[in-house]
Amino acid sequence: MGFLASIGRGTISIFATIGYITAFAAISLSHCVRPPFYPRLILHQIIEIGYYSLPVVGLTAIFTGAVLALQSFSGFGFAGEATIANVVVWGITRELGPVLAGLMVAGRIGAAMAAEIGTMRVTEQIDALTTLSTNPYKYLIAPRLIAAIATLPLLVLIADVIGVLGGFLVSIYDFGFNPTTYLKSTWDSIDAPGFISGLVKAAVFGFVVALMGTYHGYHSKGGAQGVGQATTNAVVSASILLLLFNFIITAMFFAT
């Protein structure tokens, strides 16, 4: 009986959490489209999320592209510029570019958002915002959501280019392929649905990462330990949701 009760409590808790997150997302999105807007805060977040994530996303992308080319040639036994270029372009633009950039941003930005907003919560700074007639959703949450949704596609676009460059460098300097032929094959491999699906994924991942970071930060409690827990929850939940949405979007674009 106790076992069944614990399953019941766990199920109710899961649905309650989904409800809380959905309500939080709905309120936050409604504040994203209603004035007043805070352009300075949005710009600040774009720089934090986009510009400062460039090194880690760029490094991840170039090594991933290089490894993809290496595995395609040595591991899978593919040969020829056209095949390798095709694998690298499809792999990077459809899956690895958006997913890896999303995971890197989840670790870097999701954690930072949860820690910053969580600290503001436990030190009553969010309460202070309310007493100063400033809506915390509008001032803290909406700028982060808008910036993440706008910035992740740009970041993924750059990751795509750098990832393909990684594959190019390995193919040219390691396998001795003809650069012109490889570049032409790369260009020919770019397909609109795959490329667009990657950018759509990026925008959704940006939303998921910012939503989880702000949600867990906003609801943190209990001092330093609570903020630490919020940070962990933000990164873990964003990573899992990101992979879930990756599957859903892929199925929507490519399932026959």
Partner: peptide, 15 residues
């Protein structure tokens, strides 16, 4: 709320 001003226990300044 515009009629209110509040001093918090820990000051709650925006760091």
């Amino acid at each position: 709320t515009r009629k209110f001003g509040m001093l918090f226990q820990g000051a709650a300044l925006f760091d």
